[in-house]
Write a protein that binds this DNA or RNA. Structure first.
Length: 897
RNA sequence: GGGCGACUAGCUCAGUUGGCUAGAGCAUCGGCCUUACAAGCCGAGGGUCAAAGGUUCGAGCCCUUUGUCGCCCACCA
């Protein structure tokens, strides 16, 4: 048989297995109506950059569920793809062009688009290659891109239908504008940050009926003095005592030299500032609403470049916002309108993409009416037709629905889906058309102008679960795999993406986009910071793969999977754990492989599930328990626990106990016993490989192949295509409890070896005193003690030893074990210390028992079986301590004597 | 300001419907190159379950209040 190295070459194996998978198209899914459908769409990575740990987190869990369902006999598909990521990509490419000495502003729309396409396709390839390298079992033949032909058609179709339904409209509204990106944004695209700024108190003098400016005036407080140039009113609360007797209805706006009304509105807080608020409808969302309520004019004084414009006084025109602010404050001071300045912490709104401060301003944009659409999604989630995990996220979702505003869907970019609305140059007729119209539908004029704005990236993303399956056409895929089974997504894009998919799917398919939505947190560094290039805590996954291997990184990420928690912290040390696990798996399998000989190469190892050897039965029973627990955890989307459960079974029960215990049988002359031991090991190993293959597909696939080769089995199928584990064996509770007793005894014997410096190779003879049925358990599984502690039971007692000469006593839960010593190595003081400590431990437990049992209420109200258990425990502890005390007095006698 | 979540060993986290002396991994300390694995094995130490109160025979778990941290939302300029 071939030599198998201790440490495997992960890069080599990854490449080799990856190639095999790709060649044989194993990830490709065909519709199989005899099976239940299972479908996932990938959250499409942005073509802006390359994959990062967040993507790995996202996709590792998807791959696990896909592989799990595939093995469980579902017709499972995973649709991969990428997102054009409008603003991000355009920004990145622009920066890139600047670096190359090209000014993107000088390029034509077409030329810029070509540059972006080139960049995007390049990154799309990189991402695809990375996803493949990670072993994700996506159906690459169904790969999609949000700007590909089919998806573009879907976008146009969706737009036109919404437009024709009157849900999309164009309007001049106040929008969040980023002057650096040069486009409007939706509410969800913004971030809010705490900002230490100043609060300026400015006096607006009163104006009487005859338009005379008075000496006194109303003092307003503002964080943005420059916007006063666009003020159209001052608002006060009608309930405010301070202004109840106010006789003036107008005031003078300094610097702008206008007279503006004083209005009354309940929105003004009574306990903030002076109780008077300046109203700037053109540059503040609240003020915009107030302006609408009171029919106030809108005066825009800031343009899209963030510069002051007319009708502001000439002096300020052309200044940028911060400069204007300084000049205006100076002028206010000079003209004695500035009352005071306070330090103030407020929230500042920034562009999520470029972190520039957002300027609310009036602009013509396209909007989607969201209220009714969102309401339908709300009812669907309320009716639990879509399950959201964790449950607490439902509240966030409902909050989003309840506070929904119309969605600004137009972006002033070139990269994206150009809005399919055409204006007749002759009669100004607006037409939304899926295909470019040849003539005006009203007047027949042939000169038409398409909108230059593109749609918000999330508009196409919102269609993703069904557009990728062929919508707007009626396809068999849509029929079979839609709605998708589960969507796995980061919690951070719940509002951007998940909610909008619900809205769009319900509108266009009359169906939910996914049955279950699973949200997870983010990966952070060991200090809990977000991973970012600027912080320098960002690990390039490629470097991690090179150092630790894909499987190790996947194992680490999955074991930390932050479901139902905040975020998870991962440090470099954690990857070592992942790698250690993979290596352990490799070596345990290597051990089995090297033990397979001609007479143990049996094809039908399945039948060795029914070996009647006790330890074989035990490991099979533990395997069964592991599979059940593992599957239950997965079913509950508690994926890290599923993985931890499996790892614990593998490392503990299988490696540390089972393999160690069967070693002598592998050299046994009894061929049947040898075969049984090995085949049980192979059988359990294969099931372990199957379970691990959900998470660490490469090493498991490779080991599966090695096992098959070594056993001369030609299954010609991949591990990922095998069936999931059947757990049809009896539970074997007796053996499990007997093993538990023996394992505890082994640990105690080992501890005594440490304590008294007895080498492992020194064979130990043990006397055991315990209850009769326990004694049997020790006797029947004595080989456990033999093989893992090099100890042998030479005596079974029905009562504790009276004298300790030549023995080390071990207190068991019920009874005692005694290690027989050779003369001269008894350390009485050590033993005495040990016994004293044990007595103290027991006393502690006894105290609890006594307290509980002396409580009359407890005896009356607690369930009988629990009371009985405590009584039993108390009895054992008392007996145990009585014996221990007698030993102590013997010891003391010996010491004194 | 509102909502949600977290707080358990030095660190990262488990802990099902309340019921054995509260667990795991890492880290620490100690012992082993024992024939799969030193990227390993064996063993030990380490916790007033954030605080206080309440319900209960019994609370890490349920209720109330407080504190700290995190996230989301928000029209106090």
């Amino acid at each position: 048989m071939q030599e198998i190295p201790i440490h495997f070459n992960h890069e080599e194996i990854e490449a080799q297995i990856s190639e095999q998978w790709e060649k044989s198209r194993v990830f490709h899914a065909e519709i199989d109506k005899n099976k239940q459908p299972f479908s996932i769409v990938i959250p499409p990575p942005n073509v802006t950059g390359t994959l990062h740990l967040g993507h790995i987190l996202d996709n590792v869990i998807q791959d696990a569920y896909l592989r799990w369902h595939r093995m469980r006999g579902f017709s499972a598909v995973w649709i991969p793809g990428t997102d054009h990521a409008g603003i991000s990509t355009q920004n990145v490419v622009k920066k890139f062009l600047y670096k190359q000495g090209i000014n993107p502003e000088t390029l034509s729309r077409e030329a810029l688009l070509n540059k972006i396409w080139e960049f995007a396709l390049n990154h799309k390839n990189i991402i695809t290659t990375q996803l493949k390298k990670l072993g994700f079992s996506c159906d690459w033949e169904r790969e999609r891109f949000t700007l590909d032909e089919g998806l573009s058609l879907a976008v146009r179709t969706a737009f036109v239908r919404l437009f024709n339904k009157g849900l999309i409209y164009k309007g001049s509204r106040i929008v969040s504008w980023c002057s650096r990106c040069g486009t409007a944004f939706a509410d969800e695209d913004l971030i809010h940050e705490k900002n230490s700024g100043l609060l300026w108190y400015i006096k607006y003098p009163f104006v009487d009926e005859q338009e005379n400016i008075q000496d006194d005036g109303v003092v307003i407080a503002t964080t943005r003095p420059e916007t006063m140039l666009g003020d159209v009113a001052v608002a006060i609360n009608p309930e405010d005592e301070r202004y109840k007797t106010l006789k003036y209805t107008k005031c003078f706006l300094p610097l702008a030299n206008r007279v503006i009304p004083i209005i009354k509105d309940n929105f003004v807080a009574l306990d903030f500032g002076t109780g008077a608020v300046k109203i700037t409808p053109a540059h503040d969302f609240t003020d915009y609403e107030v302006g609408k309520r009171h029919n106030l004019p809108i005066i825009s004084i800031i343009n899209k470049d963030g510069k002051i414009i007319e009708p502001a006084p000439a002096k300020y025109i052309g200044l940028d916002i911060m400069t204007a602010r300084n000049v205006i404050v100076d002028d206010l001071v000079q003209q004695k309108f500035l009352v005071k300045i306070e330090n103030y912490v407020n929230n500042i709104t920034k562009c999520e993409r470029c972190h520039n401060v957002i300027e609310p301003l009036i602009s013509e944009q396209w909007f989607l009416k969201m209220r009714d659409l969102a309401l339908r999604a709300k009812l669907t989630v309320e009716a639990k037709k879509i399950k959201i995990i964790p449950d607490s996220e439902r509240n966030d979702f409902f909050h989003w629905v309840d506070n929904i505003r119309d969605w600004c869907i137009s972006r002033q970019l070139v990269w994206g889906h150009q809005i399919p609305v055409y204006t007749c140059e002759k009669c100004d007729n607006l037409m939304a058309e899926i295909d470019t119209p040849q003539a005006c539908s009203k007047c027949g004029h042939t000169k038409l102008r398409q909108e230059t704005d593109v749609l918000d990236t999330w508009f196409s993303s919102a269609l993703w679960p069904f557009s990728t399956l062929g919508w707007s056409k009626k396809t068999p895929e849509l029929d079979f795999w839609f709605p998708t089974t589960t969507l796995f997504s980061g919690r951070d894009i719940l509002f951007f993406w998940c909610t909008r998919m619900m809205v769009m799917a319900l509108e266009f398919t009359d169906n939910i986009p996914f049955k279950t939505l699973v949200l997870h947190g983010l990966i952070r560094d060991e200090q809990g910071r977000k991973l970012s290039k600027s912080l320098g805590n960002y690990q390039d996954p490629l470097i991690l793969f090179k150092e630790f291997g894909v499987d190790a990184v996947r194992a680490t990420v999955i074991s930390k999977y932050p479901l139902g928690r905040q975020d998870c912290k991962i440090s470099n040390n954690d990857y070592k754990e992942g790698r250690a696990l993979v290596t352990k798996l490799w070596n345990s399998c290597r051990f089995i492989l090297t033990n397979l000989t001609a007479e143990t190469k049996l094809v039908d190892f399945d039948k060795f599930k029914s070996s009647d050897n006790a330890i074989d039965k035990w490991i099979i029973a533990k395997l069964k328990q592991c599979v059940i627990n593992h599957d239950n955890y997965l079913q509950a989307y508690n994926i890290s626990q599923a993985f931890v459960e499996l790892s614990a079974f593998f490392r503990g029960d299988f490696c540390d106990w089972f393999i160690e215990i069967i070693k002598p049988r592998l050299h046994s002359k009894n061929l049947v016993d040898k075969q049984q031991a090995l085949m049980t090991a192979v059988y359990v190993m294969v099931q372990i490989l199957k379970m691990f293959s959900l998470y660490i597909p490469y090493v498991t696939e490779k080991l599966w192949q090695l096992l098959q080769q070594t056993m001369d089995v030609k299954h010609e199928q991949f591990l990922l295509n095998t069936n999931w584990i059947e757990v049809d064996v009896p539970s074997a509770n007796d053996i499990c409890s007997a093993m538990l007793l023996n394992m505890n005894l082994v640990t105690k014997v080992r501890e005594m070896r440490h304590l008294f410096g007895i080498e492992y190779k020194t064979k130990l003879n043990i006397s055991i005193y315990s209850a009769r049925d326990n004694l049997k358990k020790y006797q029947e599984l004595e080989f456990v003690l033999n093989n893992t502690a090099n100890a042998f039971i030479t005596e079974s007692l029905t009562s504790p030893k009276k004298q300790l000469a030549g023995y080390i006593p071990i207190a068991l839960d019920v009874g005692f074990a005694y290690i027989k010593l050779d003369e001269g190595i008894v350390d009485i003081i050590e033993i005495s210390k040990m016994l004293t400590k044990k007595i103290a431990d027991n006393e502690k437990a006894l105290l609890t028992c006594n307290k509980t049992l002396s409580n009359e209420n407890y005896l009356q109200k607690a369930p009988a079986n629990i009371v009985q258990e405590v009584k039993e425990k108390q009895k054992n502890l008392l007996a145990n301590n009585a014996t221990l005390r007698s030993y102590i007095s013997i010891m003391e006698g010996n010491i004194i004597g």
